[in-house]
Simulated scan of single mutants.
Amino acid sequence: MADYENFVRGQLPRLLRYATMLTGEREQAADLVQDVLVKAYRRWSRISDTDHPERYVLRMVTNGYLSWRHSRAARLIAAGDLPDEVRPDDFASEHAIREDMWQRIARLPRRQRAVLVLRYYEQLADSEIAELLGCAQATVRAHAHKALTTLRNGLTIEQMAQAKES
């Protein structure tokens, strides 16, 4: 089991970051990764024989997130009215814009959110995302398109310009 322990030591930070991006909460991400690693431990002899055990476990985290039955209350924090113009040294406004975007991403359907995280955070190609999610590449592109359209429709022109600068 030394092989498993080395795998966990090497992959745990990445898995936790990835799960945090999916769930939006560190505690929920830690629970998800813990559940997955327990399952991976039981199947380690099979997983370690694959060409890419890290990809296999990443898929387990993705599938765990997509099927997780834990209900969580939507926690929306009102950022208040954003100023008309953001000063370069106005970190509070920048934080409010990022928090607003995070809340918008958190409200996306799970598959759309997973596609965005895999595409833009993990920087995977559509073919890799399709393999991880068990769907066609066209489905991945459709989820990404719908998610980005949803996000864009809620942004003002000023917020989009600010997001491009950050």
Rank of each mutant, 00 (worst) to 15 (best):
E5N: 13
F7N: 01
V8S: 05
R9F: 09
P13C: 11
R17H: 12
T20D: 03
T20P: 08
M21Y: 06
T23K: 00
G24S: 04
E25Q: 10
R26E: 15
E27Y: 07
Q28W: 10
A29H: 04
A29V: 07
A29C: 06
A30Q: 13
D31W: 04
D31K: 04
D35M: 07
D35Q: 06
V36W: 00
L37G: 02
L37Q: 03
L37D: 00
V38T: 11
K39Y: 08
A40K: 00
Y41C: 05
Y41P: 03
R43V: 03
R43F: 07
W44F: 09
W44A: 06
S45M: 07
R46V: 09
S48L: 06
P53F: 01
R55A: 11
V57R: 00
R59M: 05
M60L: 14
M60D: 02
V61F: 07
T62H: 02
N63I: 03
Y65G: 01
L66D: 06
S67L: 11
W68F: 06
W68Q: 05
W68K: 08
R69F: 05
H70G: 09
R72N: 09
R75G: 12
L82E: 06
P83W: 07
V86K: 00
R87D: 14
P88L: 10
D89S: 13
D90P: 03
A92I: 15
A92T: 15
E94K: 15
E94V: 15
A96P: 10
A96D: 09
I97T: 09
R98I: 15
D100H: 12
A106N: 09
L108I: 10
L108E: 06
P109I: 04
R111M: 10
Q112A: 04
R113V: 08
R113L: 09
R113S: 03
R113T: 05
A114H: 01
L116Y: 01
R119T: 07
R119V: 03
Y120A: 07
E122S: 09
E122K: 09
E122G: 03
Q123V: 07
L124I: 07
D126K: 12
S127A: 15
S127K: 14
I129P: 00
G134C: 11
G134F: 03
A136I: 12
Q137A: 13
Q137D: 12
A142L: 14
H143I: 04
H145E: 14
H145V: 06
K146I: 01
A147Y: 01
A147D: 02
L148T: 10
T150V: 05
L151N: 03
R152F: 02
R152K: 07
N153D: 14
N153A: 12
T156A: 05
I157E: 13
Q159N: 08
A161K: 14
A161E: 12
A161Y: 03
Q162H: 12
A163R: 11
E165M: 13
E165G: 08
E165S: 13
